[in-house]
Amino acid sequence: MKNSRALVMLAFALLAGLAAVVLASRWLLQTSSSAVTPVAVAAGAVNLGEPLTQGQLRTINWPTGSVPPGAFTDEKALEGRVVLASLAPGEPVLESKLAPIGTKGGLSAVIGSGHRAITVRVNDVVGVAGFALPGNYVDVIVNTQQAGKTDTQQSISKIVLEKILVLAVAQQVSRDDTAPKVVNAVTLEVTPDQAEKLDLARSVGTLSLVLRNQVDKQTPSTDGATKLTLFDMPASAPVAEPVHPVRAKYAARPAAKRDCVGVLSGVTGSVECF
């Protein structure tokens, strides 16, 4: 009798424990599912200006309280969108890193609104020894001939454009590479006014790029460097025009009045003045 009661109590305890485990697991499952949100992330590395495809995306569970603003929960909404910045594997795809809907892939997708892309020819010196990489900022210097007031020309170097974004070097647009690359062309992002200045500058002289700090926003005004300012020479005085001597004009003086008398000698006559 006692054994049967013990067996009943043991069976009841086992059933109660099993029910508690099932209820606890259900509660944890419901709690965990409500605390996470599916977020679309990059399945692998995605380069700048590249359109997204289904194979480049995957969905992971992200804590609901820390979902980044602009994240996507549906991978299909991202198909064909072009990225404006390189994505690392597992990085969430955000609206702020995407070009507007309908934008085609390539360099044109990363050009800012109201800006243009212009390419200038460079060499290992002009291109800052290959350290002018996509994503860097440069100043543009032109060296040309400056006409003086006396119709003489002198060389001058002047910064014509400041804080210009490098979009690409040759055909490379990736901003993740930090190794210097010596190329023969650099593509810059400029406004229409700056594009006109740059096109004129490269037609009247030679260009040089000056690499600058990416966070430096100062734009000091300069007068340009000439041979005179380079060697600290004073500006030459204006050449005075030669003075030609004025020749005096002499007027014929009238003959002085004299007293004259006629002299008759025989058959001949003459006039004598004194």
Rank of each mutant, 00 (worst) to 15 (best):
L198G: 00
T187H: 08
I156D: 08
L161Y: 07
R26N: 11
V83W: 11
L209M: 04
N184C: 00
A225D: 15
L84Y: 08
V243Q: 14
G205W: 13
K104F: 08
N136I: 05
A99D: 00
K249Y: 04
V36L: 07
V140H: 12
D259W: 11
W62V: 00
V67K: 00
P242S: 03
L23M: 08
K76V: 05
L98A: 02
Q214T: 15
N213R: 15
T226G: 00
G90F: 12
N61F: 07
G127I: 02
T31Q: 14
I164F: 13
L98C: 00
A40I: 04
N184Y: 03
G269E: 13
P238K: 14
L211T: 11
K104T: 02
A71G: 09
S221Q: 11
R5M: 05
E189S: 01
V8R: 10
R258V: 04
A201I: 06
S270F: 14
V267S: 06
A168S: 09
T187Q: 07
V182W: 03
L28M: 11
S155E: 12
A117T: 05
Q172E: 14
V239G: 05
A99T: 01
R202H: 04
M9W: 13
R5Q: 08
I111F: 14
S33K: 14
G55E: 12
Y250R: 13
G127Q: 04
V261F: 11
S265I: 13
E241T: 02
G106H: 12
P234F: 13
C260W: 10
L198D: 03
T222G: 14
G114M: 13
S157E: 01
A43S: 13
D259G: 03
D151I: 05
A132M: 07
V263N: 06
L98T: 06
V190S: 03
E79Q: 09
L84M: 05
L14Q: 07
E189R: 01
D232N: 15
F231P: 00
A132K: 02
T178I: 14
V110C: 01
R116K: 09
W27Y: 08
D259L: 10
V166R: 02
V41D: 06
T103Y: 08
I60G: 09
V128Q: 01
K227F: 13
I101D: 11
T187C: 00
A225M: 15
R5K: 10
V126M: 06
I164T: 03
Q218Y: 04
V267M: 08
E91D: 13
G112T: 04
K257I: 12
L161I: 05
A256E: 15
A179D: 10
A19D: 04
M233I: 08
R81V: 03
T268R: 15
Y250W: 09
N136R: 05
L57E: 02
P254R: 13
V261D: 02
A248K: 11
C260L: 11
A248N: 06
